[in-house]
Design a protein around this nucleic acid. Sequence first.
DNA 1: CGGGGTGTTGAAGCCTGTCAACAATTGTGG
DNA 2: CCACAATTGTTGACAGGCTTCAACACCCCG
Lengths: 236, 236
Amino acid sequence: MNPLISKLEIVATLSNDDRAKLTSFCEHQQAVDRGRDIVREAGNPENVYIMLNGWAARYKTLPDGSRQFTAFLMPGDLCNGEVTVLKKMDYNVIALTPVTVAVIGRDALIAATLERPKLVQAFWRATLVDEAVLRAWLINLGRRDAYARVAHLICELHARMSNLGLLQQIEFDLPLTQEHLGDALGLTAVHVNRVLKRLRDEGLMTLQNRMLTLLDASLLAKAASFDPGYLQAVAI
Amino acid sequence: MNPLISKLEIVATLSNDDRAKLTSFCEHQQAVDRGRDIVREAGNPENVYIMLNGWAARYKTLPDGSRQFTAFLMPGDLCNGEVTVLKKMDYNVIALTPVTVAVIGRDALIAATLERPKLVQAFWRATLVDEAVLRAWLINLGRRDAYARVAHLICELHARMSNLGLLQQIEFDLPLTQEHLGDALGLTAVHVNRVLKRLRDEGLMTLQNRMLTLLDASLLAKAASFDPGYLQAVAI
DNA sequence: CGGGGTGTTGAAGCCTGTCAACAATTGTGG
DNA sequence: CCACAATTGTTGACAGGCTTCAACACCCCG
């Protein structure tokens, strides 16, 4: 199944025509090696890149060399959807695993959406959910200690993958290093390690060999004060 | 001058017709006392509220009672623009000063924007700038210490007010308490106080009686590694 | 088999939170 | 206009969470 369609159908109902259009968007594909940037701050945003496979992260690097992720991108997510409306990009996107993206000319995407107001609205709604996730991250960094912060991120990632239909079980592939988690959470990899150990010792979850196992999902959600409401768009 | 028009004209060019429409949006006004919520998470989002005067903050409260701001809202900002596309709101907005808002029926706003694609795009671009601000806040909380964090927020607020044409000088009214700053920065009011003292002692800025004075703007920007690029939308 | 990346653990130090007391300012009612 | 209360700002002492630095184990891939 096309992940872009899956993602948009969470927030909107699409016609067969819309689905066909989205499928055609994904014809021109490109592979990106793990560790390489998919889009760059300085780059010319002529194209829009859509995640089809693998994991990526939106990030920015500070003058002192430290890095902060502002989003994890999963299949169906737009790497730089903004450029349909703005000529600027103020972030980078890096492939955290081997990634395949769909490449669409910015103008082609704009033209297509002009003919299909339903599609615009679907993209728009998906963007608003992304923004809600961003707000949740801010709250996470501002007001939760490292323990609850890690727990909250794990709950979010599990819920998002579950929404995409990428899993049903308590065990799933999480191809993130502890440094990646630290970059997302505003923590050092060392401290992420200590928190994961505690979560493991307490029997809430384990993360080994890139396999995450939720041993006690409800306790984990409670520790994180996780409320999944913000991940579900409610269409008018 | 109508602050909504000022705000949108930063990111788009408007026709006289558009401006007239926006002015008509602001006919139905409402006053909100300092400390009261303008919109509530649980509330029914039938209306869209637009800031005309005063300061407000988007926020969420955690189970333990702590509060995190996710945005400061100034004249021209939409309190809950999402509800034109989504039926849900996952945050509150509180008036930090006495506020006047314009109240528009959600359906009326949707109808108006359907006739005016230019207006939709203007709103959309403004939203994307707001999102860039949100990312900047996340980076601020994730990777800067309290000193640089406070400095960065001050730089941002100064730049935003400057963009709105609300000031030209190095001195301007900043009606936020130290607790407000703490809620935005993920710090305690006590520690904000200590940082402000240090910034004062070092001659970078003072904040007294709700008056902020930038004594050395370039040094302050340097301490914060502040780059104002993200505040300016670049239209296609 | 060897090497780079990743994970694990400990010790020490610093940044920020917590608690508390008091000062300054603002707001309110007489 | 004054008196008083409530909010906000200021400062100190102390505790704790997280970072830093370091060493080593593990694992995958060449």
